[in-house]
Write a protein that binds this DNA or RNA. Structure first.
Lengths: 357, 357
DNA sequence: GTTGTTTGATGAAGCGGTTTATCACAATCG
DNA sequence: CGATTGTGATAAACCGCTTCATCAAACAAC
């Protein structure tokens, strides 16, 4: 039905081999094609509207030029969190750039985790996994099939390839910002306990308080989560301590969690940032929509996706000298939820905002 | 390297043909395999850990069991709008259920539209396109290659396959709700003018006002867009008319646009819903996060994705009797942005909320 | 003038499956 | 009992492309 390489060869009056070589611009091969025949072949191909069949090519070469992307195991996460979108954007950018394709896998409602792993077949050369659960069956499968993989947001272990951002420093930045603004009683709403990022951020937060010689209250470091409902609930509980005991600042697990915190605070008749300052994490587009706009730790999400794709492709192409566990830098995006826009720093010309003692 | 069908045949002491037939549970074929050999083959396959190579299979059968998904041409849309996530969820559900795979394509920053179309190759059997621009090169390409496609949210044209929701009725529902609540001066922030949905919704809105014998003010039906910034800007302009002339209710292009409207209203020192009621469209997860939570027209986004995938697969498998242009029903999700929760309906037991004349 | 070497080109063997055509043999039938 | 039917199995062609091994001719070197 479709026009094949044979048809081109016939029309050009050459061998199939020549067509293949000419069309692939083979350079390192032993096969040579003269300029004259090369042009005859081009003409014939153009005339017939020939496009090479990638399936046949894959079978012959053993390469598909397709990467897999496994999105995290939660509908809510995928649906509600802008994170996966951004990471996908980054991945796509690199994948397109390197002339690869992307095959999508998710373990959404209805199928078990392990069913999802089954789907990963030899159509793909490598796999990108976002926020894999601890004991994912996918990795076993990949290892058995010898499919290289790179995970995004995963605790780096020996020999693993994973892209992370600097969660520890992120935690520090949030804390440092609050400390500079004069806060003494700060709470941290921790993210999901089974991802390492949560602990690293908390550690950064703790270390800064310690270095600043601020009393570390363990009861202000509470388990919350990456959902705004959880942020709301946790904050409500913190507020029940009464004015004297409640924190003057909250470092939330992520932007959505911060949204919940802000709501709880406002619902209690208090003001952000005047009564309680709030810092988020991620700096997704959502951070501009909170009221007030959220001061938050910026995570280079797209870059992480891009980096992961780049690493995986580099590995597939046998490139050398790839750092298998890069940690991308974070930064602090200052908006209005901490009052820093009113009086940036204690050491600046303006007064620091009033902070309840 | 990997174990092939030949290895299995050798170990089982049968022909390759028999292995192929046995493992595919061929029923309609002329090839028969006895129960005894069948089991020998199963054993051998299990023993060797054989998995069939989908590439080779594709080459032989001409089918790849892969669908393509082309996401819309805008970074902001993909990144910020929960829509594409939800539609993807729906598609994945059906795709997994029917044992297909999904290949992702996007035209993100850096590559031209037409480059994106180039990427679509014969690796896919069919293509799903979300919100295609008018004169997309993709469709030409698909037609040339004879790749069937189904579009989601696209003006249905003769012979096209596309999934839509009932935008006209959606527009009506929003308007009817407001009319029931006693509003007389209503505005509509229209969505992007180059998608048909915008016009259909506006038409529904207009028709209801007309039927209710409410004066139709064309200057209150303004061009806005699917972004919250646009909603904010448009609403600010509406508010500049002064209290006597400003609308008592606004029907926004979508939830994000409604968010902008709410902000503008509150920034002007007015209240939602007491001064101005707001209705959104889409009912994405974001609608629960506006303040107050948004009354909005629910669009069955996941179902639309699922439906599109189902149609495409049905077509590929030669199934008959498929409606090529289904229109899925919408409904109204009533929350707090119109005051209906305070006094549901004029014909109910409660008083309708006070509405400025 | 014989021997290398380079250039241009090709046939044929895969890659790992599916499928058609063919065949041996046992069972059923008039 | 010869003819027909059904069952079980297989060899070989094919899907469309890459690539190895090979070769003829032109060219350079000794």
């Amino acid at each position: 039905m479709a026009v094949t390489i044979r048809d081109v060869a016939k029309l050009a009056g050459t061998s199939i081999t020549a067509v293949s070589a000419a069309l692939n611009n083979t350079s390192g091969s032993t096969i040579r094609v003269s300029q004259a025949t090369r042009e005859r072949i081009y003409d014939a191909a153009a005339q017939l509207g020939y496009v090479s069949n990638p399936i046949a090519k894959s079978l012959a070469t053993g390469k598909t030029k397709v990467l897999g992307l496994m999105l995290p195991y939660a509908d809510a996460f995928v649906d509600q969190n802008p994170f996966s979108n951004q990471v996908m954007s980054g991945i796509m950018r690199e994948v397109v750039h390197r002339h690869y394709n992307l095959m999508l896998y998710t373990a959404t409602s209805g199928i078990q985790k392990d069913r999802a792993a089954m789907l990963v077949d030899s159509k793909i050369e490598g796999l990108l996994v976002v926020m894999p659960p601890e004991d994912s069956a996918i990795f076993l499968k990949c290892k058995k099939r010898n499919i290289p993989y790179v995970s995004i947001l995963d605790r780096p272990t020996a020999g693993s390839w994973s892209v992370n951002s600097d969660d520890y420093t992120g935690g520090r930045m949030a804390a440092e910002h609050l400390v500079k603004l004069g806060h003494k009683r700060m709470a941290h709403l921790m993210g999901s306990p089974d991802v390492s990022t949560s602990h690293l951020r908390a550690k950064g937060f703790r270390d800064v308080l310690e270095e600043a010689a601020i009393e570390l209250r363990e009861d202000l470091i509470v388990q919350s989560g990456f959902d705004w409902r959880l942020g709301l609930d946790s904050t409500e509980q913190l507020l029940q301590r009464g004015v004297k005991e409640m924190p003057t600042a909250i470092f939330a697990a992520n932007d959505l969690c911060a949204e919940g915190a802000i709501r709880a605070i406002r619902a209690a008749g208090l003001s952000v940032p005047n009564d309680i300052a709030v810092v988020g994490y991620d700096d997704t587009w959502y951070a501009t929509l909170t009221q007030p706009p959220l001061t938050t730790v910026h995570m280079p999400i797209e870059e992480m996706g891009e980096m992961a794709a780049r690493m995986l492709i580099a590995r597939l192409e046998g490139e050398d000298e790839i750092d298998p566990q890069p940690i991308l830098p974070v930064s602090l995006t200052v908006r209005n939820s901490c009052g820093a826009h009113l009086a940036p720093f204690v050491d600046g010309t303006k007064q620091s905002p009033p902070v309840r003692q």
